[in-house]
Design a protein around this nucleic acid. Sequence first.
DNA 1: GTCTATATAGTGATAGAC
DNA 2: GTCTATCACTATATAGAC
Lengths: 204, 204
Amino acid sequence: MNTTVPTTTTPITTSITTPSTRDRILDHAQKLIRLRGCNGFSYRDLADHVGVKTSSIHYYFPSKDDLLFEAVLAYSTRTLAALRAIDAQLPADEKLDRYVDMSVELSNGEEICLCGMLAADLASVPERVAREIQGFVQANEAWLGSVLAEGRADGTLHVHGDPTTAGRALFASLQGSGVLCRLFKTNTRLRDIVGAMRVQPATT
Amino acid sequence: MNTTVPTTTTPITTSITTPSTRDRILDHAQKLIRLRGCNGFSYRDLADHVGVKTSSIHYYFPSKDDLLFEAVLAYSTRTLAALRAIDAQLPADEKLDRYVDMSVELSNGEEICLCGMLAADLASVPERVAREIQGFVQANEAWLGSVLAEGRADGTLHVHGDPTTAGRALFASLQGSGVLCRLFKTNTRLRDIVGAMRVQPATT
DNA sequence: GTCTATATAGTGATAGAC
DNA sequence: GTCTATCACTATATAGAC
């Protein structure tokens, strides 16, 4: 089994000041979870990436469960903020485009959604982590559901049936596509999902 | 992190004769992979479930990569055979129902698709395993695509756009829903996907 | 706050008796 | 074909120096 962990360079946090050790650990932890799952990396892997010793990680995150929990919180907070930052004035189909853009740029082709990954690893995560993942999923589903309702109203999207159910189906589809895009080393699968829902074939 | 592996009872193989040790190992391996991912169980876990020693597993599957490969082959063969066994005379919407039935009963609420799980664990599996997973995905997508084309022709399904693209989107949606059904301890999400595509609200 | 050093347990894998 | 015994390594986690 392939146990090598590729070295990474770019931190996720965008800040003017040098990020704290804690933040650097949290950034790389998110990357490793999205890349390899919660059982696919060790404190040693993470320490090597950050350039500290494993005991320093234990200082900030006493147990791996703590690390997972904080990683989910950070990822969820950041992603939901990006969701809220999508311009409310945009027509519904373009909102979906922004959502997919977000998903594509967040993963560099090697990473999938952190919450999707940990949902696959559900049997390995503690209850409190599972609850946070549930909250993340529901927030995304609700946002997508309301955008679909909008899209039906403004005539930019094909939406069949109840928008809430359609929102759940769309989220599942995007999560699944994220995994499959990585498997086939492409991102067209992700873009095709929204493409197929659009009423207008081309936007300008 | 939760590292306990629940003990299982029912073997997957259905045969009159007592299944061989090799088959029992392979059955339980598939279960553990679907439950916890390829990094979430050890030879010791598997040996304890089967009731043998780890060295016996190494006898049949020298390395864990070998075990993963054989597990994917067995799962893929069995699942694709079940796909082919779906009555070709059925209307398209009922074929989709059979597909979802298959997905639901195969997982007991704790397991997800083996290939979906290993696609999430992509960074941990060798090339040959990744290729088998790709083949499994493409076979499923092709089958779903042709059922969707049928469904448009026989008027039982709402299909928007290219059936091939729609087949890929549907497979992704079902894979994602499998993960999310387990997260929320339900299976309605999985059934709602196909339910929303149906032209007739109820089929007698 | 970061380190060295270490404890304890688990990992995949192999040699060789029966 | 299955076992006991063991290897070299890695895992998470802790104690205590600096």
